[in-house]
C-alpha cells in the first residue's frame, strides 16, 4: 500500500518541434520523456521502504543497473488492454510497430511487445506492478555491492510484502510467477539500452545529460 501511494503520476510527452523529420521528432520526444521519467524514478526510489537505508554507493549502483527495467515495467503496464499493438510510453505518446521501426526502434518494439504480452496474460494487479518495479530495482545485480547485507534486507522486505499480498488473495503461485518474469524484463531492458546507445553513437541522436549518464553506466 505504501508503494501504491508513492507511485508517481504518469508524465505526458512534450512534442519535440525542433525538426521536420517526423521519425526523428518521435525519437527526440521519446528521449525527452525518458529523461524526465528518470528524474521521477530517482525521487520515487528514495521512497521505497529500505532504499534510503542503503549506502549512497549502493543506491547509485542499484539505480545505474536497474533504471531501465523499472521504467519498462511502467511502459508495459500502461500498454495493457490497449486496443491494437501499440506501446504506450505516455498517454499522448503511443507508438505502433511502424512508427518504432521508422525511428530506429524496431528491436525495442519487438522486445517490449513481448514483455507487454506476457504481463497481459498474467493479468497483473496494480499492487503487483508497483512491487515488480521495486523488485526490479532491488534485484538489479549491481556489482560490486558495498553492503550486501543491507541490499539483501531491502530485497527481503519487498519479497515479504509480495508474499503477504499474494497469500491474502489466496494466490500461492503468483509470487513465483512474478519472479519468473524478471529474466524477460532484464533481457528487454538490455535491448532497450542497446537500441538507445546505438541511436546515440551511430545516428548521433542527441540525448539529455541524465539519460546519457545512465546509459553510459550501462555501456
Amino acid at each position: 500500500s505504501h508503494l501504491l501511494l508513492t507511485e508517481p503520476t504518469p508524465l505526458a510527452a512534450n512534442q519535440d518541434d525542433s525538426t521536420n523529420d517526423s521519425s526523428l521528432r518521435t525519437l527526440l520526444t521519446l528521449c525527452d520523456l525518458l529523461n524526465r521519467e528518470l528524474l521521477v524514478l530517482i525521487g520515487w526510489a528514495k521512497q521505497i521502504p529500505g532504499f534510503s537505508g542503503l549506502s549512497l554507493v549502493d543506491q547509485m549502483s542499484l539505480l545505474q543497473s536497474g533504471w531501465m527495467e523499472a521504467l519498462l515495467v511502467g511502459v508495459a503496464w500502461r500498454s495493457q488492454g490497449v486496443a491494437g499493438e501499440g506501446l504506450v510510453f505516455a498517454g499522448n505518446l503511443r507508438l505502433d510497430e511502424g512508427q518504432c521501426r521508422a525511428a530506429g526502434l524496431a528491436d525495442l518494439y519487438e522486445a517490449l511487445h513481448h514483455l507487454t504480452a506476457k504481463y497481459q496474460v498474467m493479468n497483473l494487479s496494480p499492487e503487483e506492478v508497483v512491487t515488480l518495479k521495486a523488485m526490479a530495482l532491488a534485484n538489479s545485480d549491481a556489482d560490486p555491492v558495498d553492503c550486501l547485507e543491507s541490499v539483501q534486507r531491502f530485497q527481503d522486505g519487498l519479497h515479504e510484502a509480495l508474499q503477504e499480498y499474494e497469500s491474502s488473495r489466496r494466490e500461492q503461485h503468483r509470487t513465483g510467477r512474478l519472479l519468473m518474469s524478471l529474466p524477460l524484463l532484464r533481457q528487454t531492458a538490455d535491448r532497450a539500452v542497446k537500441a538507445l546507445l546505438r541511436l546515440h553513437h551511430h545516428r548521433h541522436v542527441p540525448l539529455h545529460k541524465l539519460l546519457l549518464e545512465m546509459l553510459d553506466a550501462k555501456a
Partner: peptide, 15 residues
C-alpha cells in the same frame, strides 16, 4: 564518482 555526478547530486538532495 565524477562520471555519475547528476545521479549523485539527485540522491544527495533530500527533497
Amino acid at each position: 564518482k565524477e562520471k555519475h555526478k547528476i545521479l549523485h547530486r539527485l540522491l544527495q538532495n533530500s527533497t
